[in-house]
Structures are given as structure tokens and as C-alpha cells.
Design a protein around this nucleic acid. Structure first.
Lengths: 124, 124
DNA sequence: TCAATAATGATAACCCATTATCATTAAAAA
DNA sequence: TTTTTAATGATAATGGGTTATCATTATTGA
């Protein structure tokens, strides 16, 4: 039997409001603004639970540990700032990628990450 | 002063002949066919050395540990078989990706990974 | 051939994100 | 309220890739 908790709500809200994929540590910090005593283990526990209910998805950026974002978003990709590390969601896709696969290979999905400087880091 | 070694040659040859990025463990196994007593520490040591000389490059596939491939190849991407895990080099690129970046962002590079079934796994 | 020392092999140590443990707290049904 | 037990918080433990250690081996200039 699943119960509600202030902590899970805080975690859910942090992810929903960010609009970009977050690391567990980022979720921890953000959710602590609502649930100050929140422990990191609870973050991991709830990330797993929310994945199982299909509320959130894992996002892998090359070389990084998993980030989490709301599920049921339209197809999209990500931009990672190589200066500050922030990952932004990009609602765009080059498309027609299946034809890049070799003969006899079957593509079923793809991941694209753009690297560069975010708005803030490009200025300085 | 840098000396030659049968082990380094074996590591270099394994990477050069593969034609696809390899994990340290894969390099270890392959190079052991030439240098049977090769230790894993020597593989890591030489991967670092060969990166410093610019002979090889690191390749990150989302969620995986680093792979290594020959440097100075033309721009390319990778295909990862979700069945057997093999990573293949794709000499193709959708291009025109900078325009996907948000206003005020500066893209300087990108990574694309296609996922699906390789030739062997697609058959079965 | 020989000496100097770079490179190796075996393995212990490390790093760190993630998971397990367990006593305590708090939902929520009765 | 009271009771049941899911959820939490603090922290120890884990796991797997990578690095450090150090005695031994082997390359190479003299």
C-alpha cells in the first residue's frame, strides 16, 4: 500500500519545475527547500519508485551519472554546457537518422547531445 | 625517456585493427592474444599515454564507461546494439545541428548515438 | 655486456554513486 | 485515538572501474 509523503511530493515538484533533467544531488538540494530534513537515500528510493510508476524517466548524458526528467514529454534532446555543466532540454531533432545505420542494422532509438556554452556562460 | 614495449604495441594494434571503439577490458583481451601476460593496469597506463600523445581518443557512449578509438579519423558517430552491446562506428552525420541550440547558446560539438540491433542480433 | 631506469604484473587501495540496514517517524484505515 | 506498517534519515556497506604501490623485468644508451 502506497502512502503519500511530503518528501515524495517535494521530489516530484523539483523535477516538474526544473524543466530540464536533474541529477539526484540537484533534486536533493532543490527538494530540501520544501523538505529540509530530506535524506539522499530517500531521493534515490523515490526516483526508483517514480520511474516504476512511469512518472519520470532516466536521461543519460555521455560520461555522466543518470539524470531524471518528467516522462511523457515530446521527443527531445539535450544541450550540455561544458563550462557550468548544466543540461538543457532541446525540443528539436534532426530526424531521418535511421538511414545512417549500416545495412542490416535496425535502429530503434537515438540520443543526441549538443555541447557548448549556455546563455550565461557564453556571455562571460 | 620513452621506451618501446611489446605490450604497448599489442594495445595499439588491438585498437587500430578493431575499427570501432573498445572498452579497456576488450583491449585487454584482444592484446593478450599477442602479449599473453598483459595486465589490466598496463592497459590503463598505456591508454592514458596514447591519449597524451594524441594517438587515440576517448569515446563516451551514454551510460557506459569510456571506450577508445584511433584519433585522427574523420568526423563520425556510433551505433550501439542494445542486444549484444557492441559499438560500431558510423561514418555519417545529420549535420546542421548548431541551429538546434537555443538563442544565445553556442554549440561547439555534438554526440550522436544510434541504438538498435546490429547485423547479427537483427537476424535472430 | 652492463648499468640505468622505464615499463610491467599482481594486487591492494581508491573513488563515489548507489544500495542496504535498521531504528524512528508518520500516513491512514479502523 | 489507536494500530499497522510504509516511509524516512543517518550511515554503513557495496560494486565496479580506475589508480597506486612496489618488486621484478626488459629496453636502450654507453
Amino acid at each position: 500500500m502506497i502512502r503519500n509523503s511530503r518528501q515524495r511530493d517535494a521530489i516530484r515538484a523539483a523535477i516538474a519545475n526544473a524543466g530540464r533533467p536533474l541529477l539526484p544531488q540537484e533534486i536533493h538540494k532543490l527538494a530540501q527547500q520544501t523538505a529540509p530534513k530530506l535524506g539522499i537515500a530517500t531521493v534515490y528510493r523515490n526516483l526508483q519508485a517514480l520511474q516504476e510508476t512511469g512518472e519520470i524517466n532516466q536521461v543519460m548524458i555521455p560520461g555522466d551519472s543518470p539524470r531524471f526528467e518528467l516522462a511523457q514529454q515530446p521527443h527531445h534532446h539535450h544541450f550540455k554546457c561544458t563550462q557550468c555543466g548544466e543540461v538543457t532540454t532541446l525540443y528539436a531533432c534532426p530526424g531521418k537518422l535511421a538511414e545512417l545505420a549500416p545495412e542490416g542494422y535496425q535502429m530503434h532509438s537515438h540520443e543526441l547531445t549538443l555541447y557548448g556554452y549556455c546563455g550565461e556562460c557564453a556571455d562571460t
